[in-house]
Amino acid sequence: MKNSKDDYYNAAFSHIYVEKAAWSHPRTKRILSHFPKASVVEIDHYKDVFCRKGQNYGLQHRAQNLILAVKTGTLIYRGSPVCQSFGNAHFYYASCMMNCIYDCEYCYLKGMYPSGNLVAFVNLEDIFSETKRLLSHHPVYLCISYDTDLSALEPVMGYLSEWEKFAGNHEHLNLEIRTKSANRSFEALKPSSKIIYAFTLSPQAVIEAYEHKTPSLAQRISCAADAMERGFPVRLCFDPMIYIKDWEKEYDAMLDAVSSKIRMEKLLDVSVGTFRISQDYLKKMRKQAPYSPIAQFPYQNETGVCQYPLRLSEQMERHMVLRLKENMPQENIFLWKEESGVFYE
């Protein structure tokens, strides 16, 4: 007898949709071998499943399915002016997966994609070729885990180790791996100053309330400390900062926990920014999550970007920056500023 509503839903990746074009790819076979019990459904094109109308993002996240596809068209994207470039002139991002196994209520992917299912593009070699073409013109700073969390999926997908091998052969390529995962995916990688691990951290109260299925703050801090220990440059992202009751106390407790385990002055840098999102994405999020306090917060719309009231966002960011400056040089603190047009997540 079922005793919980969750019992009615399938486990993650119980169904795997495979594009005809991806069917014979060795990476497809390798990924499928991790899911011997999954029902595999052949599809013509990933958009036939991913872009259906009327999908329920929340329910799909409860029983997330995987789509294996071949990426065509644009393979590497120029970093949008709304993304933090950390001072890199040639800033790009690759989208080798779409969507994430984590279910953060504030995630912009909920407004960006019509589906909660996860798409993995198996033709990494095409993305590598495009990266090589860019490298023939100039150095490249490439974020490879923007629209997903590659580190969380590394045991199954193995994409990080392939990127590491590729980066090892290209001197002018710098990679950023952004994650909320506590997977020690870096243990299988050769430490390199060109591979930046960027951990997104939030107070435990925010994690419990809004960052569903993610590791705890303590686990993430411990993972970041280990990555530093192994010789990887580590970036901490206190971005997006989320407004909650007693936010000051909660963010202070988080910083205390971080500085007790991590030597802040040894960090590559940190980024700070309060939550902001495009009005179009927020509109979709509000429809999909009518009972989420984050989606329903009365944001101020500043030229198409919805954000906390100025007084509140300034107060939160100022507090965070002042606390960080106690332990690290100011030039290593990147603060999102509306005027510079820099925002992401």
Binding site: D7, Y8, Y9, N10, S14, H15, Y17, S39, V41, I43, D44, D48, V49, R52, Q55, N56, L59, Q60, R62, A63, N65
Partner: peptide, 10 residues
Amino acid sequence: RTFYPDMLLS
């Protein structure tokens, strides 16, 4: 044309 009902429920 092909259609895919979601397979979310056990």
